[in-house]
Design a protein around this nucleic acid. Structure first.
Length: 717
DNA sequence: CTGCTCGACGTCTAGACAGCATGTC
DNA sequence: CTAGACGTCGAGCAG
């Protein structure tokens, strides 16, 4: 297929007349000749199309694969759907590979385009996935994530590895507009394409008092008899548009949503009210028993407003996104959760809280890049002539600062976060585990090839850390080393992974967590539920631990006191520095403990001030950690009774049940509530179920269809 | 006596990736 | 770059 034909195909599938300026530039720069490119341009400037262009070229003309890396599972899913819809009919087989949902791990060989999260790609390499060798194109989306303290290093190491094992593959890296795209280009051996192109122009402004001062556009005034939030909402709704507020905390987001809902309600049409009523009910029923948060959200939704943050459960988030797109929801009040997420078309973005709290630093201005992301999607092609991004200033003085910093100011540089100790620890183990680096010198050589190495020209600062980490990893039994001598002098250190080390690298847990597990479990003879849960909460993966409130402390200390004889790790003294963290861990343990003792979600939420979304994600992590501990315990001596306790605990945490319900939840469609109903009615095992007539089961479960399904299931076993 | 307003004081703070085996609201 | 919004509770005041 010629270049022109590929472009033709892309235009047809995307229903475009012609390539946009960014795309044309990429074409001229040789994107279809295998040229490496770093593209730095705003969200919505059509970067995905570039991946499609190069992807078609590589797959149709060379029979190679495209590996598409995304920082977010939600984004990965979105791209996957999009690619599939457009190009499957041309013989491009598209796969999605992310944690939790895996279309086809071992069969990725058969697919031409593989969409995955950065971490999943890293994990695939650790598992020595064989398809990697067939990759002819690597696309890294949102590469400014390199700057993220926790997740940046994974992306950096991943790209460095991919560059090494795929020397002739084409690399495309996409970034939001950043200052030092050239440096990234230099690192990846890529040409740099910088552009400010947006399909719909974005105008920025600052709201002070009741006046919006627009930059490069006429300013305007709002009503002064309303609060500033209300007046800007009114102005937007009168223009028949929608808006998103960005706020600094969940509490703020919820409070503002409630405050705005009565105003927004007046703008709704009869038909919309009916529709919203339906959605509101769905939102409220997202959990077994609606929590206060669900009710609050449902109430706001009835009036056309939604708050949005990670404390919501997945289903609720999706509903809000969908109905904002449809135009039913008029206003969203959000935390930063929406800034990075999926493509949510919008007209006006209002950053009300330009500062955010950072522990130890107090409240400081958001990075320019982040504010740009929030503004990013304002202005929808086809609907709007322009979009607006508005910052809220409290006074003249702040207005001046915001203007200087965000409107006229420069973007930050992206830098490498690879020198973070925990990142190095994790990745050094994995680099040795997959035999990528076989000696300490090789490791240092590898680090020279990272963005860090290229940017600073040397890795001396890392050397010492590397040595320390290797020492620790060896000490923990995850690595073996052997000195290499020349003329009696030590010149290098050979590195070999142990069996445990290899497994830990594959399980994708922090070696430090793994070591804590092993050290404590090897000599552990007895543990109970609570002591084990407190132990689990020590893992880095479950940090940060929940915050303590003053009334929690009594409750937690009492629980600790009752279980004190069961702890198999030292309890810090009340006056030790670690004591507070210990209490916070114990709080998480109590939350889990309530959960597996079948306390209602509502009670847990209220008692511990935790949100449904948060509980879910913690449970997921705990499940993964227990699985990992079980896997590790196959390789180190751990008492049989402890393993047994763990296996039971895993099922109980996953479902939130007492031990007696374990046999029942194995059935599809039976969760913690239904299992309890059955048990209390005397149905305690699958055998009991077999002995009961369908009608009886239906009566217990209050559902005929479910009873029918269960009966079919057990009779076919 | 009751109900409301206002201010002092205390509280609390964003997000989300990974394993594995199969099918949740 | 080292805070600030929200909620609670009680005092003070009007009715």
């Amino acid at each position: 297929m010629t270049k022109e034909e590929i472009v033709e195909l892309i235009l047809k599938e995307n229903k475009f007349e012609s390539l946009n300026p960014v795309q044309r530039k990429a074409f001229e720069m040789g994107i279809l000749d295998g040229e490496n490119l770093v593209v730095s341009s705003p969200t919505s400037s059509g970067k995905t199309i570039l991946a499609e262009l190069a992807g078609l070229n590589v797959s149709l003309n060379k029979g190679q694969k495209m590996l598409y890396l995304s920082p977010l599972v939600a984004l990965a899913r979105e791209k996957y759907e999009e690619f599939k819809k457009k190009y499957e009919k041309y013989g491009i087989k598209v796969a999605l590979s992310i944690g939790n949902y895996d279309s086809s791990d071992p069969f990725l060989e058969k697919y031409s385009w593989i969409v995955c999260s950065n971490e999943k790609a890293d994990s695939l390499i650790r598992h020595e996935a064989s398809f990697i060798k067939d990759v002819g194109l690597v696309v890294a989306d949102e590469i400014h994530l390199l700057d993220d303290f926790e997740r940046g290093p994974t992306l950096e190491i991943l790209l460095t590895i991919l560059k090494e094992i795929l020397p002739s593959a084409q690399f495309l890296a996409f970034s939001a507009t950043i200052k030092n795209a050239e440096e990234i280009g230099e690192w990846l051996g890529a040409k740099v394409l910088k552009s400010d192109f947006r399909p719909v122009p974005l105008y920025k402004g600052i709201l002070v008092g009741n006046k919006i001062k627009m930059f490069k556009r006429e300013s305007y005034e709002l009503r002064s008899d309303l609060s500033l939030e209300e007046s800007i909402v009114e102005d937007t709704l009168l223009k028949k548009k929608q808006l998103i507020f960005f706020l600094s905390s969940r509490k703020n987001a919820e409070a503002l949503a409630e405050r705005l809902s009565n105003l927004v309600f007046h703008f709704l049409e009869e038909k919309e009210i009916k529709e919203l009523e339906k959605i509101s009910q769905k939102i409220e029923k997202a959990l077994e028993i609606p929590t206060e948060q669900c009710k609050k959200l449902a109430n706001c939704l009835k009036k056309g407003v939604a708050f949005y943050h990670s404390g919501l459960v997945f289903f609720q988030r999706v509903l809000i996104e969908e109905n904002y797109k449809k135009g039913l929801i008029k206003v969203i009040t959000s935390t930063t959760a929406l800034a990075f997420g999926i493509n949510l078309p919008n007209w006006r973005a209002v950053v009300r809280d330009v500062k955010r709290y950072y522990p130890g630093l107090g409240s400081i201005y958001l990075p320019v890049l982040e504010v740009e992301q929030m503004f990013g999607r304002s202005g929808r092609p086809q609907y709007d002539k322009w979009g607006e991004g508005i910052l809220v200033a409290k006074n003249k003085e702040e207005e001046r600062e915001l203007n200087e910093y965000y409107i006229r100011g420069e973007l930050e540089e992206i830098s490498s976060q690879i020198s973070s100790e925990s990142a190095l620890r994790m990745h050094i183990l994995s680099l040795v585990a997959n035999r990528f680096c076989k000696s300490q010198n090789q490791l240092v050589e590898f680090l020279k090839k990272t963005f860090f190495g290229k940017k600073y020209g040397q890795v001396e600062i890392l050397k010492e850390k590397v040595e320390g980490i290797i020492f620790a990893l060896e000490d923990w039994g995850f690595l073996k080393t052997q000195e290499i001598r020349e003329d009696g002098e030590v010149v290098d250190k050979q590195l070999m992974v142990t069996k445990v080390g290899k497994r830990i690298s594959q399980l994708y847990i922090d070696p430090l967590s793994a070591n804590i597990f092993i050290e404590n479990l090897i000599n552990c003879q007895k543990a109970n539920e609570f002591s084990f849960l407190s132990f689990l909460a020590k893992a880095k993966e479950l940090k940060p631990s929940p915050n303590l409130s003053s009334k929690d402390i009594f409750l937690i200390e009492q629980e600790i006191f009752e279980n004190q004889d069961w702890f198999f790790f030292p309890i810090p003294d009340e006056f030790d520095e670690e004591y507070e963290e210990f209490l916070r861990e114990a709080k998480l343990a109590m939350i889990f403990s309530f959960w597996i003792n079948e306390k209602s979600e509502k009670e847990i939420m209220q008692k511990f001030k935790i949100t449904p979304g948060e509980l879910r994600s913690r449970i997921e992590i705990a499940d993964w950690l227990i699985y990992s501990i079980l896997e590790i315990s196959k390789l180190v001596p751990v008492a049989k009774q402890i393993q047994k306790l763990l296996r039971k605990l895993r099922v109980r945490i996953y479902y939130g049940i007492k031990e007696e319900l374990i046999p029942l939840v194995k059935l599809e469609g039976i969760g913690r509530l239904r299992a309890r109903l059955l048990f209390n009615a005397g149905v305690k095992t699958i055998q009991d179920l077999k002995g009961k007539p369908v009608e009886k089961i239906a009566q217990i479960l209050k559902s005929k269809t479910l009873a029918q399904k269960i009966k079919e299931k057990i009779s076919s076993q």
